[in-house]
């Protein structure tokens, strides 16, 4: 199983901090970063700039921000869930918002978890570690394309 994490994040500071935090906890072997919703789908469906990629090679976890250029996080999530290849893909919403509406919409669109980014970096590192440990080490993922 791949230890790839797809990080969908448009804020470069957040991107760097997330990468640093994930690296610190040493669970992810590889972190791929895309900076908007459209590119996230291109990557996952191996099209556009990511057309050469093996569409069967999916990340173990998608960390998805909600507020994104082009397509927002919820829309990206819906398309992931609408596609047979990607519908069982673990997607965790990682965002600054803790608004009830956002949380509810996130789950309604098929998020596996909803995590708020703490402002405090040490908290952030703990959060990233917990996410990595759970989704990359503990969680068993359904194989792509297999469904009942």
């Amino acid at each position: 199983m791949s230890k790839l994490i797809l990080l969908v994040e448009d804020n470069s500071s957040d991107e760097k901090l997330t990468v640093l935090a994930l690296r610190k906890c040493e669970v992810a072997s590889q972190i791929t970063i895309v900076r908007d919703g459209a590119e996230a789908l291109d990557y996952l469906f191996a099209r556009g700039v990511h057309a050469g990629r093996d569409p069967g090679a999916l990340p173990a976890l998608v960390l998805l921000d909600l507020k994104l250029p082009k397509l927002d996080g919820v829309e990206v999530l819906r398309r992931i869930r609408a596609n047979d290849q990607t519908k069982s893909l673990p997607v965790v919403i990682l965002t600054s918002s803790k608004q009830d509406d956002d949380i509810a919409e996130g789950y309604a669109s098929g998020a596996n978890a909803y995590v708020r980014k703490p402002v405090d970096y040490s908290e952030f590192v703990k959060t990233a570690k917990a996410l990595g440990v759970f989704w990359l080490l503990l969680n068993e993922t359904a194989r792509p394309g297999i469904s009942r």
Partner: peptide, 15 residues
């Protein structure tokens, strides 16, 4: 909630 917190996270994180 979203936009103002992100820079703060940056300040905190990098510090």
């Amino acid at each position: 909630a979203h936009d103002l917190r992100a820079p703060l996270r940056g300040m905190n994180g990098f510090a």
